[in-house]
């Protein structure tokens, strides 16, 4: 269970999250919905240590995670696919993927995962030798997800995977998200596109200016006035 309790967090002196509560049980697909600038990315950033937490606590299975670094979070099994994707643009698709498995060292299992992910993302196999920056937006998003999965994280945090992509590509990516969640990976999915997110999520939160204003299971959220008004 990943839990955030009364988290205040932000950047420098600027507080973005004002006492946020959120829980992601193992095995679940939880979505965090909200308008642009509400603090969705900051929530994910605070979990992995890219945003500073000034109050409250972030815990994984009861052990604090607060104000660590992304590499420490990954060692605990939490991988973030950032909104900016954060690929190594000058490096080949293949190198980007292999680097995703850095912490696991060299093993047969890593090599197998490499092949398996290329089966999941066949577009990447065609581009293995290309520098990552030459990929299309959708391909870059796929590479970012595949790179994160190379670490075999227990928790995958996805920051707006649909952002800026054509509907056909978005469908493709959400099919894959569904598949990943069936394979024992817990997912926290940040989206502006509520309809889409609620198709894959079991449970959801709505965030407005740094606070959770509504939560419930997917059906409750679809029916809620807050979500109806803002997003559907």
């Amino acid at each position: 269970m990943l839990s955030l309790r009364n988290v205040r967090a932000g950047y420098g002196g600027k507080e973005v999250l004002h006492g946020l509560n959120l829980a992601v049980p193992r095995g679940a697909v939880v979505t965090l919905l909200g308008a642009n600038g509400a603090g969705k990315s900051t929530t994910l950033n605070a979990i992995v240590g890219l945003a500073r937490c000034s109050d409250g606590s972030i815990e994984l299975d009861g052990v604090p995670l607060t104000n660590g670094t992304p590499d420490q979070a990954l060692r605990r099994g939490i991988a973030l696919v950032a909104e900016q994707r954060e690929l190594f643009g000058g490096m080949s698709v293949s190198d980007n993927l292999r680097l995703g498995g850095l912490l696991r060292g060299r093993s047969r299992a890593v090599a197998e995962d490499f092949e398996k992910l290329l089966d999941t993302f066949p577009r990447l196999r065609e581009r293995l030798a290309q520098p990552a920056r030459t990929l299309s937006g959708g391909e870059q998003q796929m590479l970012a997800i595949a790179r994160a999965l190379m670490a075999r994280p227990a928790y995958l945090l996805l920051d707006e995977p649909s952002l800026g992509l054509a509907p056909r590509i978005v469908d493709e990516i959400f099919d894959i998200i569904r598949r990943i969640s069936g394979e024992d990976t817990t997912i926290l999915l940040v989206e502006q596109n509520a309809m889409l997110a609620l198709e894959v999520a079991d449970y959801g939160y709505v965030i407005e200016t740094g606070e959770i204003t509504f939560e419930g299971d997917a059906d409750a959220l679809r029916g809620s006035a807050a979500v109806q008004e803002s997003y559907l």
Binding site: V48, L50, T69, P70, D71, L74, R75, A79, L80, A82, Q84, E86, L87, F88, G89, G90, M91, D95, R98, L99, G100, G101, L102, L103, R106, R147, A148, A151
Partner: peptide, 24 residues
């Protein structure tokens, strides 16, 4: 070596490198 590539990766994109587990 992957360790060597990780150093180049950190030179290119610090955030990206820390997200794959590199202690920058």
């Amino acid at each position: 070596t992957l360790q060597g590539k990780a150093i180049l990766a950190a030179c290119e994109n610090r955030t990206g490198a820390s997200l794959i587990g590199v202690r920058v």
